[in-house]
């Protein structure tokens, strides 16, 4: 994904928040495969979501590399169990990564079930983003930005 408009962001945010509630998890994070955070819900105040996004994307990339070596298309899901916190990672539509952090207040089974439903909904939203970004009429922030604006950003010293 390279552009996210307000409307689709809201739709994605709704799915992520619902998943957080329905799975009874601690937090839900949606990131792109390059490690950029797209949306999040739950107890994220104490969480360094930027680092978590980058490391998860690195982890998924490495796991994908292993899959390739084993002639697998990809490992779509992985779970790591900790003493207090567990993490469930799934790839949605081969493009984005859905991360659920959970503890003993829920179960891996419930998390998986809810993730499946959320993945389907996210796939639909991603499709609509895709068709939207292909329309040339979409406004772009870069129409307003001049080369001078970019120059000025770096002229502070």
């Amino acid at each position: 994904m390279d552009v996210l408009y307000v409307e689709e962001y809201q739709a994605i945010q709704n799915v992520v928040e619902r998943l957080y509630r329905d799975s009874n998890s601690m937090a839900v994070l949606l990131i792109d495969k390059n490690g950029q955070e797209i949306a999040s819900a739950g107890q994220i105040e104490e969480l360094d979501t930027t680092s978590l996004s980058s490391l998860t994307a690195g982890n998924v990339a490495a796991t994908g590399g292993i899959a390739k070596l084993l002639a697998e298309k990809e490992f779509t899901g992985q779970t790591h169990e900790g003493e207090h916190t567990n993490i469930h990672i799934t790839i949605v539509a081969q493009r984005i990564i859905l991360v659920v952090l959970f503890d003993q207040h829920t179960s891996l089974g419930l998390v998986r079930l809810r993730v499946k439903k959320a993945s389907k909904e996210l796939e639909g939203i991603l499709d609509s983003i895709n068709s939207k970004t292909q329309q040339p009429s979409q406004p772009s922030i870069f129409e307003e930005i001049t080369d001078d604006d970019i120059d000025n950003l770096f002229n502070d010293d």
């Binding site: 996210l4 408009y5 307000v6 962001y9 792109d32 922030i141």
Partner: peptide
């Protein structure tokens, strides 16, 4: 790939 988020207004 660059990611432009119009909601959080970030490039």
């Amino acid at each position: 790939m660059s990611f432009i988020n119009y909601s959080s207004r970030e490039i």
